[in-house]
Design a protein around this nucleic acid. Structure first.
Length: 925
RNA sequence: GCCUCGGUGGUGGAAUUGGUAGACACGCAGGACUUAAAAUCCUGUUCGCCGAAAAAGCGAGUGCGGGUUCGAUUCCCGCCCGAGGCACCA
């Protein structure tokens, strides 16, 4: 009987489906375990062999946990809102809802073939009304919340209003408009509209004016990655910054908690680093400098700068403010006004891309000076684009001897440089050290810079001219898109005031549209439906939410997917709690992962869930690269030359479909039939074989190197495919796909099969118990597989299976008692064959719910060990010793060993090192 | 420039705590079975030296150069290369 994997896999997939084998209940006495995959965006291209890597890893782990007695939640769904479907609709006239459904059907059939243990009754689709109803609902909660900075906790807007009525906003400074202060009396006197404006400045989901990439030719707003070098990726049209009303999430209010929370989760160092770099926390001071105005109109104003190095305050040679700084106009001296306005024009003419691409040193003197607080020195104020308006205060104090950018600027404009660090500064480049002793620094003289920071801060605070201040690089997250295929906002505009709709009205259904042209005035396509937008004397918000809205909370919906009264019941989220294991790619490091962490914290603050970090552990699977095949056409001909001979000709390199190549050998007939262009191709071969070139690159349609998992499953079976993906290398590592290598795993499956069946004789199972040697080989394998699975070292677990099967084959082990246990250990990796053989053996129930065999240590006990014997650290021989041998026993035996004696040449050894259970090392004199 | 992770045979990779470097596979070479093929099985396979060959032996060897140690792929110092992320953030 042969290993008929196609029949076996089809049979069990149908069987498991019919018996609801993967249904997960929220009621269980077992401990819970939640394993989550990053759900896919259902693109039109379908899955290639790289995509399921993480899914297989999580599937193996889920099944392993189930066998170990856990109630395992392992769901799957689709992140089905997004740009590509909308683009596809514009180009092909197929509505996003339709193409998305088609794509999901394709994904589902591909996933099903691999035999995952998903509970499909819990599937979520972010574009489903029943799902996005709750996305809209959570948006309303964010809209109705503000961050109480003292409590570091989101609270309801009503509580904020109550507070304003009693004490104004003194205790709760405005995060949106930093200079806004009012008393309780003032608050009560404000108009309703003014009150709404002020509250908007506090809300966690808020509307403001922001810059977007506007492309006039396409009539649309583009995302940053759709803009390449200042022009649109599609069509190459110019893109300008345009100010538009936009929705935002006030994620900056969570900066501190997002940073602190990283210490409580098990993410890779690089992942944590990426997030903390993105948050970009820095400590420093805001310092006010008095302006010494010549004839400019900024009477009484001060220049506020942000610095992380207040210790260098005596090294200030000039100030720089951003061209967008609010003081630019008012501090410009009359004689400089022409220069300043032409500089501002120049800056405005440059796109952000240009500014980033060519970092020229540019700037202009404003004509105004500042007073130094401690020395009698006039400090010129310059305007330059190297200072960013959006960070800190948009103004800096420049210390050229300690800062590279300031140094270059000073050099370029011939500004004299003050040295405050003595020999640490050599006049040719800035030195950003903190280790120097300060000179020329008044009250800081003689102090180590790192110590002087606190001294300077105390002094500045004492004088009331400076304040300790923490800054973050992170910006609030833009939350609206001028697009169709996303969640509509549950917001209506009346008299420029945003009014939230009541949750009873949810979902706000996305109206069907076929023509997805952008609306007027840079609005989304929904603006073209005035009858939809009209709402009781107001107008609906016509922009939609971004792709990350739905994915910021989907892991909660899986816990309670059919709840019509809540996004997820508190009982369900209390039961399942945090995601214990989250597997996905690194591309979501700062987007999805930060947003979902923020949403979780907000829902926690508002009391809807009981945990404030969503993912306890994150594993990032690597990417599987494609192994491309190349052919070489002799320029200007239809003749192709084999790779080994290509250097003798002038050739052009072309990608050829990997399915027409066996190893490196091209199927020349298939190639001629591939494209009409190649019908008359002729070949210069090497001994009749055309050898292709190869290159590792991204798996992509355009390189013809995409391998479809369907084909692999058809040829080798799902179990082989699963095991091979795991065998390829560490999950977290990038690695190339090599279809040839799968043969080895497939051979292993067949070899395993032969422990149960002989081709001619049929079943070869015996009732006799296995030999001690077989048990030993088996438990050695179980121990290793279990350890490796638990630490996500799936590749070494697969090789342990191979070693185990090789050993059991050599030992002719066909014992039922042993092999039944074997199947349980194998089931997470290769569930179909395990279930089939389990049934064949007449075991009761399903192998999915068997219990994981405990390692019987008695079979693993050793009485002796083959010790390596090294001479001066280099292994020269081995010696079989009793496991309890003493140092004296060992020395006696080692000294009479012929090989050791040869090396000793009659002289006594200097030392004999014996490490029990490890090795022996003889050190020569 | 800064941060993180990597660099081991022809290839993917293993070596979990400083203890036999190259497990397990792929590929390749040779062989058995077969009319033949497939399938299966067996043997060999880091490089170099010695040798007719085999066995045995010797030398080198985990990106490079140093160091610590009886012993280093593993720890320390200094470089080189690759991947990813950030990037005028004061």
């Amino acid at each position: 009987m042969e290993y008929a994997f196609r029949n076996i896999e089809r049979k069990w997939q149908e069987n498991w489906k019919a018996s609801n084998a993967y249904k997960v209940s929220n009621e269980s006495t077992k401990p819970k375990f939640y394993v989550l995959d990053m759900f896919p965006y259902p693109s039109g291209a379908g899955l290639h062999v790289g995509h399921p890597l993480g899914y297989i890893a999580s599937d193996v782990f889920s099944r392993y946990k189930r066998l170990k007695g856990f109630n395992v939640l392992h769901p799957m769904g689709y992140d089905s809102f997004g740009l590509p479907a909308e683009q596809y609709a514009i180009e092909h006239g197929i509505p996003p809802a339709v193409s998305t459904d088609q794509n999901i059907a394709t994904f589902r059939s591909q996933l099903d073939k691999i035999g995952f243990c998903y509970d499909w009754e819990r599937e979520v689709r972010t574009s489903d009304q029943e799902y996005y109803k709750w996305t809209q609902w959570i948006f309303l909660q964010l809209f109705d919340s503000w961050m109480d900075r003292k409590l570091q906790k989101a609270r309801r807007i009503s509580e904020l209003m109550a507070n304003f009525e009693v004490e104004g906003n003194a205790a709760n400074p405005c995060p949106g408009e930093k200079n806004l202060f009012f008393t309780a009396a003032a608050w009560l006197a404000f108009s309703d509209k003014r009150k709404a404006e002020i509250l908007m400045q506090y809300r966690l989901a808020f509307c403001g004016i922001g810059e977007v990439n506007w492309c006039e030719a396409l009539g649309t707003v583009l995302a940053n990655d759709e803009v390449i070098n200042g022009v649109s990726e599609r069509g190459g049209h110019p893109v300008v910054k345009k100010k538009l009303r936009q929705w935002y999430l006030r994620i900056t209010e969570y900066a501190e908690r997002l940073l602190a929370g990283l210490q409580t989760v098990d993410f890779s160092e690089s992942m944590k680093d990426m997030q903390s770099n993105w948050i970009g926390k820095s400590f420093g001071a805001e310092i006010d400098f008095e302006l010494d105005l010549v004839d400019a109109p900024a009477e009484g104003k001060k220049l506020k700068v942000y610095t992380t190095r207040p210790d260098t305050i005596f090294g200030i040679d000039f100030m720089v403010i951003a061209p967008e700084h609010e003081l630019v106009a008012s501090i410009t001296a009359a004689e400089q006004s022409t220069d300043v306005s032409s500089y501002i024009d120049y800056v405005n003419s440059r796109s952000e891309r240009e500014r980033m691409a060519e970092k020229k040193i540019t700037g202009v003197f404003s004509g105004t000076y500042c007073k130094h607080p401690f020395v009698d020195r006039k400090i010129p104020v310059w305007i330059s684009e190297y200072v960013l308006a959006g960070y800190g205060t948009g103004a800096i104090m420049a210390v050229p001897c300690g800062d590279e950018r300031d140094f270059k600027f000073a050099n370029h404009f011939n500004i004299p440089i003050t040295n405050i660090i003595g020999s640490f500064y050599d006049g040719t480049e800035a030195n950003p050290t903190k280790e120097a002793k300060l000179e020329n620094s008044g009250f800081l003289n003689g102090l180590l810079m790192s110590d002087a920071i606190a001294v300077a801060l105390d002094k500045l605070e004492g004088l009331g001219i400076g304040k300790r201040h923490t800054n973050y690089k992170m910006r609030d997250a833009a939350f609206s898109r001028q697009r169709y295929w996303g969640e509509p906002f549950p917001i209506v505009w009346k008299d420029d005031v945003a009014i939230p709709l009541s949750s009873a009205e949810l979902p706000i259904v996305l109206p069907p549209m076929t023509d997805l042209r952008p609306g007027p005035d840079a609005q989304g396509p929904l603006a073209n439906l005035p009858e939809w937008a009209a709402y009781e004397g107001g107008t609906r918000e016509v922009n939609t939410m971004p792709g990350y809205a739905g994915s910021s909370w989907y892991f909660l919906r899986y816990m309670d997917p059919n709840n019509t009264d809540a996004f997820c019941s508190r009982e369900a989220s209390d039961y399942w709690g945090q995601v214990d294991l989250y597997i996905g790619g690194t591309e979501h490091a700062v987007g999805h992962l930060l947003y979902s962490r923020m949403w979780t914290k907000a829902l926690f603050d508002l009391g809807y869930i009981g945990f404030d970090e969503p993912f306890k552990r994150l594993v990032n699977q690597g990417k599987i690269g494609g192994d491309s095949r190349l052919v070489y056409r002799i320029r200007g001909t239809k003749q192709f030359v084999s790779a080994g001979l290509k250097d003798q000709h002038e050739t052009d390199e072309l990608h050829v479909d990997v399915s027409m190549v066996d190893g490196l050998d091209l199927d020349m007939e298939a190639f001629r039939k591939w494209k009409p262009d190649f019908a008359e191709a002729t070949f210069i071969t090497e001994d009749g074989v055309y050898k292709c070139g190869s290159r590792l690159e991204k798996m992509s349609k355009r390189y013809f190197n995409v391998v479809n998992p369907d084909d692999i499953v058809e040829r080798y079976g799902a179990d082989t495919f699963r095991m091979y993906e795991m065998f390829l290398g560490p999950v977290e590592q990038d690695k190339p796909w090599d279809t040839k290598g799968i043969e080895g795993v497939h051979r292993f499956m067949k070899k395993l099969w032969r422990l149960f069946f002989d081709v001619e004789k049929g079943a070869v199972l015996t009732d006799a118990t296995a030999s001690d040697a077989a048990w030993k080989a088996f438990y050695k394998m179980v121990k290793k597989v279990e350890e490796d699975t638990a630490r996500f070292s799936f590749n070494t677990a697969v090789s342990s299976f191979m070693i185990g099967v090789n050993d059991l084959t050599d030992l002719h082990c066909h014992s039922k008692d042993l092999l039944a246990k074997f199947l349980v250990v194998l089931a997470p990796y290769a569930p179909h064959i395990a279930e089939e053989l389990w049934a064949v053996m007449g075991q009761s129930g399903s192998v999915l719910d068997a219990s994981y065999p405990a390692v019987e240590e008695k079979y693993l006990l050793e009485t002796s060990k083959e010790y390596p014997v090294a001479i001066n650290g280099k292994t020269r021989t081995t010696l079989n010793l009793d496991i309890n041998a003493s140092q004296a026993d060992v020395e006696a035996l080692v000294l009479v060993d012929p090989i050791v004696m040869k090396w000793l040449e009659g002289k006594p050894p200097k030392k004999i090192i014996y490490v029990k259970n490890k090795m022996i090392n003889v050190v020569l004199g």
